[in-house]
């Protein structure tokens, strides 16, 4: 039996040219690739914008599939990456001499060490890398990949050429999704695409994963509903009801809505996200119906942010949502 590959892997770009949307990054990198002279790299940007894909594509273009096995090492957050690993594994890889080049590829005389999700490395581990980077820069190039560039310590960041990856806008995403749909002979509604684009928020990986889940469940033709089913998105009506309950000024209504939401099993963080979108979309002119003026709006946003943090720490979903509901209600009542 052939094991079906996730589409995210199947349609990962194979060379730098294919990387969607990141024109500046791509053009700069292409020039470096032609001369085969690469600086240390630091890629940062939101998830699903092609950072890992670009790094792997560079590796493939430089060394070809065979030599990649010995010349490239990829470490991500699921590997043990404490300070001991940096001291032993990374250092021994960085220090090793390079072997003979393979024919047909530029094969510059250095190895590539890709540190994916580098922002989850500890400060100590990052500090331990500083000297290693300089000492072995003749034979090894480092490529750091992270979401938050601020989590990379300054001494490391200043040793690298920084590249920012932007979230994908709809046009680019449409091209890619349509390409995949054509290859997999899937028909996608324009409406469903709109939804897919808005759910993924510029994250191409999320879009592709959602699409594949929808296809698995509903077969060859995908419509709005099947995307909605797999995305974990909460129906708009439920959020509207919650906000209406907050507007009503009666605590019981809020409690009822929150109890319902929890019983339906919706993820609390998704509730926060959609509640925020709903509040931000409301008109802010004070005389408009259902208006949310600036001050309550700010209060609501703060309540949402605090709740998200608490959820992240593992707090109880019901209590947190009820608290947010009460806060929103209070903010709106003060308006």
């Amino acid at each position: 039996m052939t094991v079906a590959q996730p589409w995210v892997e199947k349609y990962r770009p194979r060379n730098v040219d294919e990387v969607a949307h990141q024109e500046e990054v791509v053009s700069t990198l292409k020039r470096s690739l032609e001369t085969a002279n690469l600086p240390h790299l630091l890629f940062y940007g939101p998830p699903g914008t092609g950072k890992t894909s670009t790094a792997l594509a560079i590796a493939r273009q430089l060394y070809g599939p065979e030599l990649m096995k010995t010349r490239v090492m990829e470490l991500n957050a699921s590997d043990e990456r404490g300070i001991n690993v940096v001291r032993k594994k990374v250092k021994s890889f960085a220090a090793a001499a390079v072997g003979a080049p393979a024919a047909g590829y530029p094969c510059p005389p250095y190895k590539l060490l890709i540190l994916d999700e580098a922002d989850s490395m500890t400060q100590d581990a990052q500090n331990a890398l500083r000297r290693t980077m300089e000492q072995y820069s003749k034979v090894t190039r480092f490529c750091f990949i992270c979401n938050y560039v601020s989590r990379i310590i300054e001494p490391l960041a200043s040793r690298c050429a920084k590249f920012r990856f932007r979230p994908l806008h709809q046009g680019v995403m449409r091209d890619r999704i349509e390409f995949i749909c054509a290859r997999e002979s899937v028909s996608l509604d324009p409406e469903a695409f709109q939804l897919l684009a808005s759910i993924s928020g510029g994250d191409l990986r999320k879009a592709v994963t959602t699409l594949q889940s929808a296809v698995r469940l509903s077969g060859g033709s995908v419509d709005r509903q099947s995307i909605l089913d797999v995305s974990g998105e909460i129906p708009q009506a439920a959020i509207t009801r919650l906000l209406a309950a907050c507007r009503s000024g009666v605590f019981d209504n809020v409690q009822q809505q929150v109890t319902d939401l929890i019983a339906e099993g919706y993820p609390a963080q998704q509730v926060l996200l959609q509640l925020q979108a709903e509040v931000l979309a409301a008109p802010d002119a004070p005389d408009a119906p259902d208006a949310v003026p600036a001050r309550p709006r700010a209060l609501v946003c703060e309540a949402l942010a605090q709740c998200d943090k608490a959820l992240q720490d593992g707090a109880d979903e019901f209590l947190q949502l009820l608290h947010v509901g009460a806060q929103v209600q209070r903010a709106l009542a003060a308006a």
């Binding site: 605590f251 709740c307 608490a310 720490d313 593992g314 707090a315 109880d316 209590l319 947190q320 009820l322 608290h323 009460a326 806060q327 209600q329 209070r330």
Partner: peptide, 19 residues
Amino acid sequence: DPRADITELAARYEHRLQE
């Protein structure tokens, strides 16, 4: 209505309890 305040308390202490 004191219930919003009470809810806030419960949410806060449950959060701390996790930590």
